[in-house]
Amino acid sequence: MAKGNNQIEKLAEAPVEFIKDGSAFIQKCQKPNSKEYLKIVRSVGIGFVAVGIIGYAIKLVHIPIRYLIV
């Protein structure tokens, strides 16, 4: 019985432990400063939108094709 109780206790402790570890980790983390952050956002944004515009161009080509075959 005692052993079973122990296990249940452990199971209940796991998430608490996890949250503690996780938040400690996040607090220890190195955070980007605003200059670094802006640079990253810019490069990701440019890449994302550029690829998106190319893809959208392909989708636009699709519209007349749909009219033709449907």
Partner: peptide
Amino acid sequence: TITIATNFVADVLG
């Protein structure tokens, strides 16, 4: 990633 980027552009600038 490419599809998601395309959908994003279509939703904002379509």
